[in-house]
Write a protein that binds this DNA or RNA. Sequence first.
DNA 1: GCTTGACTTGGAGTCAACTCCAGGTGTTAC
DNA 2: GTAACACCTGGAGTTGACTCCAAGTCAAGC
Lengths: 128, 128
Amino acid sequence: MKISTVSKQSGLSADTLRYYERIGLLPEVNRSENGIRDFNELDVQRVEFIKCMRRAGLPIDVLIHYFALVQQGHRTIEARKEILVQQRALLVARMKAMQQTLDLLDHKISVYDDVVLKTEMEIAPLEE
Amino acid sequence: MKISTVSKQSGLSADTLRYYERIGLLPEVNRSENGIRDFNELDVQRVEFIKCMRRAGLPIDVLIHYFALVQQGHRTIEARKEILVQQRALLVARMKAMQQTLDLLDHKISVYDDVVLKTEMEIAPLEE
DNA sequence: GCTTGACTTGGAGTCAACTCCAGGTGTTAC
DNA sequence: GTAACACCTGGAGTTGACTCCAAGTCAAGC
């Protein structure tokens, strides 16, 4: 599977995919004789996993560390789980903060709605 | 209220507060005769609002634009509401993506739990 | 009167995460 | 055979959001 295909499928640019490989977030992808990358199913799965984690704000270095542990086999299972648990906690905290922001936005929007409604009813002119 | 106080209260560094003023995210804060910033209640409220929005990932330029509209008075109410509604939608989308990541993390963690449990029961050695 | 500490400024530096570019190769279409 | 196109590389540039720094001012404590 060529990089353009993976790019289209994943929505990540070819540049980003090459960048991910370069920094060791993706493993060295196989090449066809002419040197062109040939992503296999596992590579694509990894891209999807990375995409999902990145979208939620997990930093790249954490992911690199995680995959390095995966590489080292079963004796790193505890450490890997620890990383996931920790990142989960950070994620939950971020989501909580975002929920508060959402509540505030909803409040503000409803206030604007009220104001607009009043204006439309021409009850009074408004100043800031 | 001096910058150090606002910094402590808000958790934003004095450098960040000055930076916010410099780029026009905060209005020009009043100064005491010797040129030292003296934040008033409104400034502090704005800092809190900014903090909340930034934590949720709203970009600085959007906030600058929003405050510029506030500055222009009541005729910009519709436009301001539009910004909030749009940012709200983006926020909800981000939260949704994060929820998916959270689900995936939970799944992965539970798989690791199973593996660890099995290992501890010495049912079998594990390979990657 | 001198040190200490908090404040000021303009400007430069840093960081994460891309993103772009120039110059080169290899395959396909006419 | 040559133009168009997708790919390659190493390296530089960009973006957003800070963060740090040097050099200076001022008030308070000793």
